[in-house]
Simulated scan of single mutants.
Amino acid sequence: MVKMLSRKKVYALMGLLTVFLLQPVLPSDAYGHSLFIQSSRYHVHAGKVSPLFFCYGHHIPVDDGVRAEKLKSVRVYTPAGDIRKIKIRNETCLHSYMVDYDGPGTYVLAAETNPGFYTVYMDEKGRERHTIKPKSAIIDRSGEIKLSLYSKQYAKTYVTCEKSSSDFPGRIGQNLELVPVRDISGLKAGDDLELKVYFKGKPYTGPGTWNATYNGFSTRSEDYYYSKTAVSGDTIRIPIPRSGRWFVRYSVKVDAEGADREKYLQEKQTATLVFQIPGEVKNPGK
């Protein structure tokens, strides 16, 4: 026998449903998800085939699946100077792909996203709305435009096969790129990571923001070991106090010009870097 709800409970449920329906619908991409490319291992032997995969979202080390349409390219730069383009599967997943480390040296795993829009605006009823459309698509039926971005991301990590390349391939030519000034595989806990920032092929001299964390620091969304820090110029120095897998994120925003202002107010570009600091064996099994 089905138990009928009281009129009071029905009204309460209707109220909750109304609140739910009035909330803005936020597509996953609209949260400003960050893209990090990772390797299962950071030191491999020649002949080893090992996977790469992604962190996409706000929780380290793995969060949401990545839509195939989000990825413009995934590439492997070999010590021999070859660039291997990986065919992206047409699905939403972690996009893990096997990498063949067939010779000694430093390999670079890199990815680039397709650009996308993110707009936050107030509708005619005063409600905040989020969309992945350009502002030109919603301006006629909105009030205030609170945020209007056109964004693109570049992700990178380094893997050493047997030994590092004699000429460390720090820079690969990404539009926005974090470039270690020395072989990143030689970093130890207690060292500083020094990065040079390149934007459109040149050292970047403008403002930006960075933050960084390591795997296991926090299970909370966007809770980084180093919170967002404003910097200016082409150099970033990050103290690395402990071993583990580290995630670095750096972003710049540039005001839109000319006809682009009809679609967005700012262009945001983000570069990420993942690296691993080896630690001591904690349980040798004796």
Rank of each mutant, 00 (worst) to 15 (best):
E177S: 08
R171H: 05
Y224W: 10
D223V: 02
G15E: 06
S136R: 14
P203Q: 13
V281I: 14
I145W: 04
W210L: 09
M122E: 14
D29V: 09
A256I: 09
T106C: 02
P203G: 12
F117V: 05
Y154T: 03
E222Y: 01
N90G: 03
A46Q: 15
S39R: 01
A155H: 00
D64Y: 00
K253Q: 14
H130P: 02
I132L: 09
V179W: 04
G57F: 00
G103K: 06
G170C: 05
Y158N: 01
P51R: 00
T113Y: 06
P239S: 02
L22W: 13
A68R: 05
L22N: 09
E177H: 04
V25N: 12
G126T: 13
H33I: 06
G216K: 01
V19W: 13
D140T: 13
T157Y: 04
K146H: 04
S142F: 08
D63G: 11
K146A: 04
A46K: 15
E177C: 09
S185N: 14
S151V: 02
S73M: 11
V66Q: 01
A271G: 09
Y250A: 10
S166T: 14
G81E: 02
K200S: 11
E194Y: 08
D82I: 00
T106H: 01
G173H: 08
L94C: 02
L21H: 08
K8W: 10
H43T: 06
V248D: 01
M98C: 05
T270N: 03
T78W: 01
P284W: 13
V62K: 00
G103W: 00
K196I: 12
A230N: 13
Y121H: 11
A256C: 10
T119C: 13
R41T: 11
G258A: 12
E128C: 10
A271P: 05
G201Y: 11
I277F: 00
D63V: 02
G216A: 04
K282Q: 15
K286L: 12
Q269H: 08
V25M: 11
Y154N: 04
T213Y: 04
N114V: 10
G170W: 03
S142T: 12
K152G: 13
S166N: 12
Y198C: 04
F53N: 05
P134D: 05
P278R: 07
K156A: 07
T235Q: 10
H130L: 04
A155Y: 00
A12G: 07
R84V: 15
G15P: 01
E162D: 15
S142E: 08
V25L: 12
V120C: 06
P27V: 08
S34N: 14
I238K: 02
W246M: 03
H33T: 14
P104K: 06
P24G: 09
S136Y: 08
S221M: 03
T160M: 13
K228Y: 07
G186E: 14
K9W: 11
K48F: 08
V274W: 01
L147Y: 07
Y154K: 03
R171V: 06
E280S: 14
V99C: 03
V62H: 00
K135V: 01
F117Y: 15
K196G: 12
N211R: 13
P104A: 07
V159I: 05
G65V: 00
Y150A: 03
P180W: 05
L17G: 07
S6Y: 06
S243K: 03
V159K: 04
S151T: 12
T18F: 15
V281A: 10
S50M: 14
Y158W: 06
I88Y: 01
C161L: 06
T18S: 05
N211F: 08
